[in-house]
Computed example of a mutant assay.
Amino acid sequence: MQIPDYMVVPSLVVVVIILLGIAFWARYKTVGPDEAMVVTGSFLGSRNVMSEEKDRKIKIVRGGGAFILPIFQQAEYLSLLSLKLDVSTPEVYTELGVPVLTDGVAIIKIGGSVEDVVTAAEQFMGKPTEALKAEAQEVLEGHLRAILGSMTVEEIYRNRDKFAQEVQAVAAKDLKKMGLQIVSFTIKDVRDKHGYLDALGKPRIATVKRDAEIAEAEAVRDARVQKAKAEQEGQKAELLRDTFIAEAEKEKVLKIASYKREQDMAKAEADQAYFIQEARSKQSVVDEQMKVELVRKDKEIELEAKEILKKERQYDAEVKKRADADRYAVEVSAEADKA
């Protein structure tokens, strides 16, 4: 299929752009936080670039990325991870001529500044990590021997931290020239083959044992004293508690007695009021009965009076009737006599 003439130029431009993109992607290098990329060559720019003798420049890239120009630039990597070194010395004579052996542990790493990375790149780029560790170990062991020769066994024995700090401070200057820094340095062991340190420690051990025994005896004594005080306080507390209980019991009994007395008085008053009310009720009943009896008697008297009056009236009527009858008889008789 033939491409039209008007599509040739745009197609070439697209192809060129794609090729440039692939080339850029292939030549763009990234760096992790635990490493540094050392870029050498031309057209390095000015950021994180150091110039050396004869106008030789080195660019350091950390925690980012950079485009490496083909032909003109080259990139290599340095690890910034820490390294552990076991440092030891053969017998070294101290200030007073006592031979001792020491073991220590150092943690080192390439410094974080651009200058440190450039210095380390100059000395260790392309070398294995073991070479870096070996050179740093030689420096540390040399200074360790030097510091041992300037101190007494007693000073080393009693203050290992100061001893380690002096070694670290002196060795750090030389390691700085190699682009390295000491993260930490610790003395693990100081010993000798003649029993000097053991003899040096015996008085201290005896003192510690003695102090421990004294402390134990004092602790036992204090425990007994505290126990006696606690028992005494306990007895006081029990006595106080018993007193409180007795007083509470007494108060309870008094309250119960007072309540019972009040209850009895109230009951007596209630009983008396009941008897009085009962008497009043009986009296009221008697009064009512008397009233009823009086009414009954009044009724009887009234009835008797009425009966008497009735009888009187009957009697009067009978008397009048007999009188009238007698008068009539007299009148009749008189009339008869007249006739």
Rank of each mutant, 00 (worst) to 15 (best):
T89Y: 05
I58A: 06
I71K: 15
G104R: 01
Q74Y: 13
A131H: 00
E95N: 10
K109C: 03
G64M: 00
K133P: 02
E166D: 06
G111E: 07
L101V: 12
R160L: 12
A134M: 05
L85R: 02
L140M: 11
I58M: 15
E135R: 09
V87R: 04
L69Y: 14
E76I: 14
V92H: 03
N48P: 02
V105M: 03
E35I: 06
A171V: 04
S79N: 08
Q74D: 13
T40K: 14
L85C: 07
V167S: 07
K84D: 09
G149L: 01
P70Y: 13
S46M: 10
K84L: 08
L144V: 04
D116S: 11
A136Y: 04
R145S: 06
A131P: 05
R160G: 15
R56M: 11
E52M: 14
N48S: 15
L80R: 05
L101W: 05
A172N: 15
D116H: 14
G65E: 03
K84N: 10
I147H: 02
R145I: 03
K173N: 08
V167C: 03
M151G: 06
K84H: 09
G104D: 02
V118F: 10
L80Q: 01
Q168L: 13
I60P: 08
I71D: 04
F124A: 08
A164S: 14
E135H: 00
E155L: 12
Q168I: 01
K133V: 06
A172E: 15
N48I: 13
T129K: 09
A169G: 10
T129M: 04
F163W: 10
K173R: 12
A171H: 02
V39P: 00
P128M: 12
G97P: 02
A66P: 01
Q165S: 08
I60E: 08
E53D: 14
E122A: 11
L69T: 09
V49S: 10
V139K: 02
E138L: 11
Y77Q: 09
E115N: 06
Q74H: 15
V38Q: 10
V117S: 07
M50V: 00
M125R: 09
S79W: 12
K59R: 15
G149V: 04
E115S: 03
A66I: 03
A169L: 12
R158E: 09
A171M: 02
R62T: 15
L148S: 02
T89D: 07
K173C: 07
I68W: 13
V92G: 01
Q137S: 10
A169N: 12
G97L: 01
G63V: 01
A36F: 13
P90M: 11
I110Q: 01
P90A: 15
T40I: 04
